[in-house]
Design a protein around this nucleic acid. Structure first.
Lengths: 114, 114
DNA sequence: TTTACATATTCCTATATTGGTATATATTTT
DNA sequence: AAAATATATACCAATATAGGAATATGTAAA
């Protein structure tokens, strides 16, 4: 046997950097696909496909408006992630208090990669 | 171009259900590979390989002890996930307060899948 | 110094996944 | 009705997986 299908749960949905970027860009707003295309600088099918994954998972929802589709983030599902991660809080050492530096590093790398 | 390498960041490391299970099983403990094999009921290379990914990411560390390798969880990196997710907390609606039910469902499904 | 044990690694296969291009499907405007 | 616009989908290529089996490597015990 081989890999199992993955993307259709919240953990995998946010594992993709572009999908995280989409969520960041879209949260608290309502944007059409074209607006997202312009904002992100990605091609249209790429945007539609990632949105489709996010929609299937439930992290995003869509509203038809004429020939437009207006997308928005449904952030609630992120509670599932939060819920999983937070159970390990008792085990966090404060050793990694250069976390700030680490995070910046990560972010810099992600920006370069795309 | 095609896919980019994924597993080597915390988001992708925990996207794999087996790796989440490993972290859950191993947190706050120190276990050898064989103990993990018995505990999880997976074959030994599978355990070693998933541990290897977690180790490369930094979510797990290992200590040689004779012919054994003792593994433990380094939970700090999970702060990165927490840090990302928590920025969306202001957007959580309490609409999804059947989250408990949802979570149980997810968990039941995961157990079945493996 | 063999033999047994613990673990990692290599090799292979099947499949999922991202990305790109071209095309189909609405819907609106002219 | 035709053209234009907005979006989704189908198709294709490249590659990264996860999983399994066999093997290599390292260490201890006999």
């Amino acid at each position: 046997m081989a890999r199992a299908k993955t993307t259709l749960d919240p953990f995998n949905a946010i594992a993709e950097p572009k999908r995280r970027a989409l969520i960041e860009a879209l949260v608290g707003k309502e944007l059409t696909v074209t607006e997202i295309v312009e904002l992100m600088g990605w091609n249209q099918p790429m945007v539609s496909k990632h949105l489709s994954v996010l929609k299937q998972v439930g992290l995003v929802s869509e509203k038809k408006e004429g020939r437009y589709r207006v997308y928005k983030v449904d952030a609630d599902l992120l509670k599932i992630i939060q819920n999983w991660v937070i159970q390990f809080e008792p085990y966090w050492n404060n050793k990694l208090d250069n976390l700030e530096a680490y995070l910046n590093q990560i972010q810099a790398k992600e920006v370069n990669d795309e």
